Amino acid sequence: MVSKINNFVISFLNRAHLDTKKILTTYIYALILIPLFFGSFIILTSSIAKQNINVVLNNTPLIAIDMIVALTDFIMGYYIWLKKDLILKHEGNYRFLMFTQAISQLMVGNIFCLILALFGIIRINEQTGKLKCQSSFIKVPAVIFLAIFGFCLVLTISIFIRK
């Protein structure tokens, strides 16, 4: 069953001509553009409601947590864009980044980025065996952002428990 799904995804990636570089580029665009659209939406809704953004964030703490997630995604997208060549140079860096990003995006519920990260993991696993992350310039920020997303998940769960 798993191999059939894996074969289906690999054939989809081959038909779509998605290699590791294109997947990473699409992932960068998603990490940068989704937070920009979310911020624009928050500004639009606050202007329609004729409220200050601080009032909106105080009234709905989940939006405040989502703003933290969006800002973190934007910073991570920009950082990955700057280090794109280093990530693509070593397959271990790519695998580690996509694995941590898959976990991070699963924690915050960003399904589109989760799917892209899983595509990246599947594509790199198809090519090579086990490799370790070569660069601390990739490892440290990925773990820091993973911790931030974990903190946001804990905040979200605590808000739902209080209700």
Rank of each mutant, 00 (worst) to 15 (best):
A117I: 03
T60P: 02
I34Y: 03
N93I: 07
V69E: 03
Y94L: 15
L106I: 09
L71N: 12
Q105P: 02
F96A: 07
R95S: 07
N59T: 07
R15Q: 15
Q101V: 12
K21I: 06
V140I: 07
V108G: 03
I34H: 00
F119P: 01
Q51N: 06
Y79M: 05
F96K: 01
A70M: 03
P61C: 06
F8M: 09
T72G: 11
E91G: 14
I138M: 06
R162T: 12
Q127W: 13
I5V: 05
F137K: 02
F12N: 14
S135C: 01
P141L: 08
F99N: 12
I53R: 00
L153M: 12
L155D: 00
F37D: 13
R162N: 14
G39P: 01
F151N: 07
F151I: 10
G150M: 08
W81P: 01
I53M: 04
I122Q: 00
S11R: 13
A30N: 06
S3R: 04
W81F: 12
I48W: 09
F41W: 02
L18R: 09
P141Q: 03
D73T: 08
L13V: 11
I75A: 07
I122L: 08
T156D: 13
I148M: 05
S46F: 00
R95T: 07
I42R: 02
F41T: 04
S40Y: 10
V108I: 13
W81H: 12
L57P: 00
K83V: 01
L71T: 06
N93Y: 10
V2W: 08
F74Q: 09
I121V: 13
I159V: 15
L155T: 02
I115P: 02
G129S: 15
W81I: 03
L116R: 00
I144C: 11
T60G: 02
I148Q: 02
N54M: 11
C133W: 00
L131Q: 14
Y78W: 08
P35C: 12
F99E: 08
G92D: 07
K22R: 10
Y78G: 04
K22A: 13
P141T: 03
M107D: 14
N110A: 06
V55P: 00
V2G: 14
I10W: 11
A147F: 06
Q51E: 04
C133K: 02
G77C: 07
Q127H: 15
G120Y: 04
I32F: 09
F119S: 02
L71I: 08
V154C: 13
N7C: 05
T20D: 04
F160G: 14
L146A: 06
N54D: 08
S11Y: 11
K132V: 05
A49S: 10
Y27A: 05
L18Y: 08
D73S: 09
N54E: 11
